[in-house]
């Protein structure tokens, strides 16, 4: 009997991270809804999906299979512990930064291509730090902080910020070949144009329309969404709002730091001026430390200090790096 080879994704190299990226490449609810609508038009109705797709289908997203790494972490820690962990990490200035960024939402366009690989980022060095709008984020306030992630959590997934927001430059910088291929691809029947005959959700159209205005909507989306507390974490992992990505990353930190790092990088690429840049960087640095990549962790931490000289994370970062 042939034994199951260890999955490459479980490695700790670039290939593992690439695999993790591809595994994350799942369609948004809006996109699925559009697909369902097209199927209905073509005589293969998906009951319920096209009409009420975005929010309701999301709730029924199965936890099946491997895509939802978070569930693994949830099993290790138990959902309660996980929630507390996430709350702790996100607690640092989450609400405060969210509010802040809405006040000062100017520097949302990154100073450099948002998703440079980490080597490139570090080659750039401290002289040209990423332009995050959060430089002066105040220390967190306890009550607001603990509530933070949950509030973001409840963002109705169908809006799917990444799709709304991903600026064209990011796509170009990050995945040139993919982008150009996509551009070359003949549109055929566009996924975002479900036929008028079928009751399709507003999201696809809204998603496309919203793109030009992307940066500010991106920053606001995660923080602006109120919602039920205590929703199970795992239920949200498919959708990739900034908060969701970071929650996944945070959850993966202990069990799978590489995955955590990949997710935080993905988040950085998708939300270069994101509202939770500090949280993201903190997670990324933690992951690097856990991966034993101390030099990278340190140089990233020094960038962090430059950008967020008043951050509440600084003491923790120093402890983590043994400083």
């Amino acid at each position: 009997m042939t034994t199951e080879p260890k999955r490459l994704r479980l490695g700790s190299d670039a290939l593992a991270a690439g695999l993790a990226s591809l595994q994350q490449a799942q369609p948004s609810e809006a996109r699925l809804a559009a697909l369902a609508a097209r199927l209905a038009d073509a005589g293969a109705p998906v009951e319920g999906h096209a009409v009420e797709a975005p929010s309701s289908t999301f709730q029924r997203v199965p936890e099946s299979r491997s895509s939802l790494r978070l569930t693994r972490a949830a099993k290790v820690f138990g959902p309660g512990t996980l929630a507390v962990l996430v709350a702790l990490v996100f607690g640092g200035g989450l609400i405060a930064t969210a509010i802040l960024i809405r006040k000062a939402d100017t520097p949302l366009v990154p100073a450099r291509p948002p998703a440079l690989p980490i080597e490139a980022q570090q080659a750039v060095g401290p002289a040209t730090p990423p332009a995050h709008p959060l430089a002066d984020a105040p220390a967190p306030s306890g009550a607001a902080a603990t509530r933070g992630p949950e509030a973001g959590d409840a963002q109705p997934q169908p809006t799917k910020p990444p799709e709304v927001a991903l600026p064209v430059p990011a796509g170009d910088a990050v995945a040139p070949s993919l982008g150009s291929e996509a551009r070359l691809a003949p549109p055929k029947t566009a996924g975002s144009e479900p036929s008028p005959a079928s009751p399709s959700p507003a999201e696809p159209a809204a998603r496309v329309d919203a793109r030009p205005a992307a940066p500010s909507t991106r920053a606001e989306t995660p923080a602006a969404a109120p919602g039920p507390e205590g929703a199970p974490l795992a239920a949200n992992t498919v959708v990739e709002s900034e908060v969701d990505l970071l929650k996944q990353a945070r959850s993966a930190l202990s069990a799978d730091p590489l995955q955590a790092f990949a997710l935080s990088e993905r988040c950085r690429a998708q939300y270069p001026g994101g509202a939770f840049a500090q949280e993201r960087e903190y997670i990324a640095i933690s992951a690097l430390v856990r991966l034993g990549r101390d030099n990278e962790a340190r140089s990233r931490a020094s960038l962090f200090r430059m950008h967020y000289p008043n951050s509440a994370y600084l003491p923790r970062l120093a402890r983590m790096l043994g400083e």
Binding site: G18, Q24, A25, P162, A185, A190, S192, V208
Partner: peptide, 18 residues
């Protein structure tokens, strides 16, 4: 392709390399 389509698939640099 309509703009909304192509950026919906984001696999990052490493995913792209893969």
């Amino acid at each position: 392709a309509p703009a909304g389509q192509l950026d919906a698939v984001f696999v990052g640099e490493l995913g792209d390399r893969l």
